[in-house]
Design a protein around this nucleic acid. Structure first.
Length: 494
RNA sequence: GCCCCCAUCGUCUAGUGGCCCAGGACGCGGCCCUCUCAAGGCCAAAACAGGGAUUCGAAUUCCCUUGGGGGCACCA
């Protein structure tokens, strides 16, 4: 069915300047999927040449984020590989050599203009309503003069000698040919005065040296795509296949998520950061499933996918170029779906750390028993704490006012609790099969509704108005504790 | 300001000239189930941005307008 695709080499190349977010996660996911699908390689490369913006711990967060999502990479800074090193900060000389080669071939040149002059130049251009452009002062300096000035210790950068005339056409896999007038391009800086390469050079050199076949990245790179193609062509390299993914917009669909909005979002229990999502009780399965479908679709209308499903079904052809607003309620939906898809044991394992974090001591047997009745009713894993914390407490503390008893007096509630207590006492142990028929029979005779009777019992036994089913809960809690809690509630009412 | 990209229900999307008075999913509303809350089942409302052109025929092709997004650093 699927035509055989040659093995790809793809790279996820984040810069360690901030927290890993949904956009990165999706790019990495698609990289992983297409690599696995074609039997290719998924490499992680850290683009850390901007020391000013470097964020300590970002690389570790990236790696643990990838692993949490299940996106194991084949080559990377911590595991190495045949194309290393995988940190750009360890490849300075490689970029410099390449830049010099371009200079030697008259495809780049040394520029001695000071940042101050360039800033002023730009301001003047802006004032004259001209697009900001390098004015070409050093573009035609002779090699001799350049070398003399370098020798004299003059600060310099290396600029790309962008063609002044004609057009450049590059093919993006999702959008087709994109053509720009070369005169709208600039003589971009390739190497900074401190000798470090800029992204444009470093990424192209690395992609070539690392045999990258497909460059999958965000569409914020689209404007510099012609430059990148021109650089590849200047070196005489074959270009990779360019794939620019749509951007993610904030839920309203109006623009990208800002820092301030991310903070607001967190108050509602959502986040665009992978680390947060984990803490908020989302499963990696759901995040993967959800994010995969933001910009990609599968044609038979199925939407529930595991990572393995996606590896089988993913393709580059169904990618969608238009921007996508993030829909967190759909994440909730997928989270529920995947939670319910877990085995009871798996679910028990997953919620354990959340209880731990909340300071609630659990035991594996009970966890396994509550799993089936809990799985159906939590949206996020940490919901389990609120919903099922009472299973692990010695006693619960219902508030008198919390005991519902719609339209019932205190005396009536006490009556119900006392009767229930005596009924339950008659059993050797509480099981749903034994107890439920008896209790329902009591409801019949009592004149109260099932909602009234079970509602009071629920609060007495669980301390909550909302809980998993009453009888199942009582069976798990055990007769002794149940009776104790009912007695407690009676005392409270009296 | 200049350059580039995008445009189907509120949102994510299917749709590559006739199968579409547009299909699915989330959400929303209703009903069923029901000891609470969920889950599940069923039903409903909801979109081709506007204008031209091509064609026997356009959501699908082309042009313009409008709207939205991204980019214009010795950041990535």
């Amino acid at each position: 069915m699927d035509q055989k695709i040659a093995p790809v080499r793809v790279r996820f190349a984040p810069s360690p300047t901030g927290h890993m977010h949904l956009g990165s996660a999706r790019t990495a996911l698609y990289d992983y999927l297409i690599a696995k699908k074609t039997g290719g390689k998924f490499v992680l490369r850290i683009e850390d040449t901007d020391f000013k913006r470097y964020m300590p711990g970002a690389e570790e967060e990236l790696i643990s984020g990838l692993r949490w999502l299940g996106l194991e990479f084949d080559e990377g800074p911590d595991i190495g590989g045949p194309y290393g090193p995988y940190r750009q900060s360890e490849r300075k000389e490689i970029y410099l050599e390449h830049a010099r080669r371009l200079v030697a071939e008259d495809k780049a040149y040394y520029c001695f203009c000071t940042p101050e002059r360039l800033t002023k130049m730009r301001e003047d251009q802006q004032r004259r309503k001209e697009p900001p452009h390098y004015d070409g002062t050093c573009r035609n300096l002779s090699i001799d003069e350049s070398e003399r000035r370098i020798h004299d210790g003059e600060k310099h950068v290396i600029r790309f000698k962008t063609p002044k005339e004609g057009t450049t056409t590059v093919r993006d896999l999702l959008r087709g040919d994109i053509t720009v007038e070369n005169q709208t391009l600039d003589d971009y800086i390739l190497v900074k005065s401190d000798g470090w390469a800029l992204y444009h050079l470093a990424a192209m050199v690395d992609d070539h040296l690392m045999d990258i076949t497909h460059v999958i990245r965000g569409s914020e790179w689209l404007p510099s795509l012609p430059l990148h193609a021109l650089i590849c062509r200047a070196f005489g390299w074959q270009e990779p296949i360019w794939v620019h993914l749509s951007v993610f917009l904030k839920p309203s669909g109006k623009g990208k998520m800002s820092k301030r909005e991310s903070a607001d979002l967190l108050k509602d229990g959502y986040s665009i950061f992978i680390k947060d999502l984990q803490d908020l009780g989302y499963t990696p399965e759901a995040v993967v499933n959800w994010v995969a479908l933001m910009g990609w679709s599968y044609d038979d209308h199925t939407e529930f996918f595991t990572l393995d499903d996606l590896v089988k079904k993913f393709n580059l052809e169904h990618l969608n170029p238009s921007p996508a607003a993030i829909n967190f309620t759909k994440l909730d939906h997928f989270n529920g779906l995947h939670i319910r898809n877990f085995t009871d044991q798996e679910f028990a394992n997953r919620i354990t750390p959340y209880f731990l974090q909340a300071g609630i001591r659990t035991d594996p047997e009970t966890l396994l028993k509550i799993a089936p009745i809990l799985k159906e009713r939590v949206a996020t894993l940490d919901d389990a704490i609120e919903m099922a914390g009472f299973f692990f407490k010695d006693k619960v503390n219902p508030i008198a006012g919390e005991l519902p008893g719609k339209g019932m007096s205190n005396e009536q509630m006490i009556e119900v609790l006392k009767k229930s207590h005596s009924l339950l006492s008659g059993f050797e142990k509480i099981t749903v099969a034994d107890v439920e028929p008896v209790m329902r029979e009591y409801v019949e005779q009592s004149g109260f509704s099932a909602g009234q009777v079970f509602g009071i019992l629920r609060v007495a036994v669980t301390g909550q108005r909302i809980s998993p089913p009453l009888f199942e809960s009582m069976e798990i809690i055990g007769k002794e504790k149940v009776l104790e809690r009912i007695e407690n509630a009676i005392k409270l009412l009296e």
